[in-house]
């Protein structure tokens, strides 16, 4: 029985064709095979949200998805937020301006979760933002400035 296969995945607009073991999780494929270490691993139980990426436009946990399940699909990671000219995405800019991070470990997952929240509920209240962040743990900030950052980013994205 084969234990691996060739997959083709579009990551942040770039098509990658690679040989993966069947047991390779998406997060390990991104970090170890594509050397895209923006996506973090914070737990073994699918509870911290650090590994959040978008799969065909939906926020998902890359630690709970196999790389083979992404064959033929589109993945967007934190590295794919900034524009081609290197300017920051409104979410990155808002985290920067509102001090939405301290150590930064949770930040890639927070920003990708934020993107999902803003896309699903562009007019989310602060309470709704807090509720939708239930799957993303931060050990530093106390969440206050993360919510402020997402609020600011949502407002900015609604204007542009």
């Amino acid at each position: 029985m084969t234990m691996g296969q060739t997959i083709t995945v579009t990551v942040n607009g770039t098509v990658h064709t690679a040989e993966v073991e069947h047991r390779t999780l998406l997060v390990h494929f991104l970090r170890e095979q594509l050397n895209m270490t923006g996506t973090h691993i914070g737990c073994d139980t699918s509870t911290c949200g650090c590994c959040t990426v978008h799969l065909d436009g939906d926020a998902v946990l890359s630690c709970s998805t196999l790389a083979v399940q992404c064959d033929g699909r589109e993945v967007r990671t934190v590295e794919g937020l900034q524009a081609a000219d290197g300017s920051l995405h409104p979410i990155q800019q808002a985290f920067h301006e509102n001090h939405g991070l301290q150590c930064g470990f949770c930040t890639p997952g927070m920003m990708m979760a934020a993107l999902g929240i803003i896309e699903q509920q562009p007019n989310a209240t602060d309470d709704e933002i807090r509720a939708a962040l239930e799957g993303n743990l931060c050990r530093c900030t106390g969440y206050q400035n993360i919510v402020a950052s997402i609020r600011a980013a949502a407002d900015q994205m609604a204007r542009s």
């Binding site: 699918s46 949200g49 959040t52 939906d58 926020a59 998902v60 946990l61 709970s64 998805t65 979760a113 999902g116 929240i117 699903q120 939708a132 239930e134 799957g135 993303n136």
Partner: peptide, 9 residues
Amino acid sequence: IGSPQVRNR
């Protein structure tokens, strides 16, 4: 159930 990420899968 869980979080938006869990409910998406």
